[in-house]
Amino acid sequence: MEMKPLTRVLLGLVCLLVAIWLVAPTLVVVPMSFNENKSLAFPPQGFSWQWYQNFATNPDWSNAFLNSLKVASIVAVLATVLGTLAAFGLDRMKARPANLLRMLMLTPMVVPGVVLAIGIYAVYLDTQLVGTLIGFVLAHTILALPFVLIAVSASLEVFDRRLETAAASLGAGALTTFRTVTLPLIAPGVLSGLLFAFATSFDEIVVSLFITNPYLKTLPVQIFASITRDADPTVAAVGTILLFATTILIGGGMLLLGRERKGRP
């Protein structure tokens, strides 16, 4: 259907407004990170790289960043392995129990973060996992698992299982078939699951606030602590870095998933 020129212009304007409304608050962080004064004022005054410098040299910040990187990397691998196995298992199960199990595994996405955080905190107090690496990894894996499950399940949905029958007829056992046929074909889903899992852990704040302690802080926790204590523009600098990093990661994930949906060349 052809659109009238006026309709087209109006539609474009509305879309632009919505886009600005969605992105603007995030983008405000970018100019603020170059502020000369130690305040989170907008519009910023002057120009300096000092807050980026502070991020790199102040151990509070660099440690928090390294902690986040460490936790997110382990979580990404763990959640991807578990999520892929779960997706594979659910795909091969009878429909009814599989749907129930799938819903159960997706609950961390639905349950309010605070509720989940209180529960995890209560358990961690008893088991002395507060402020430990393993504590963070376990909590974040729970949150990241649904993303992997969804991404890999989507890939398995379009995977032609008859290829596994063909592989068997050619002499491949179940494991060899998975390694040489199934996994390469669902790889885009697995990879995008990995990226989502990493991003989920890297910017997780609610649960992290509960289970952190002075010895182990992740970057979002450090940001929150810093901004509530003093208006340090280092927060804006970190925000800018995170903004670009996650945009690249998630964008990459979406691209991979999109290509999978459309089918391969």
């Binding site: 032609d160 008859r162 290829l163 029958t165 063909a166 592989a167 068997a168 007829s169 050619l170 002499g171 491949a172 056992g173 078939t177 046929v181 390469p184 074909l185 391969r264």
Partner: peptide
């Protein structure tokens, strides 16, 4: 099946796309 050493041709070809 994978130990029977029997060749099978399917209606849907079943070639590995990758």
């Amino acid at each position: 099946a994978h130990k029977r050493n029997i060749g099978v041709v399917f209606q849907h070809y079943a070639l590995f796309p990758h």
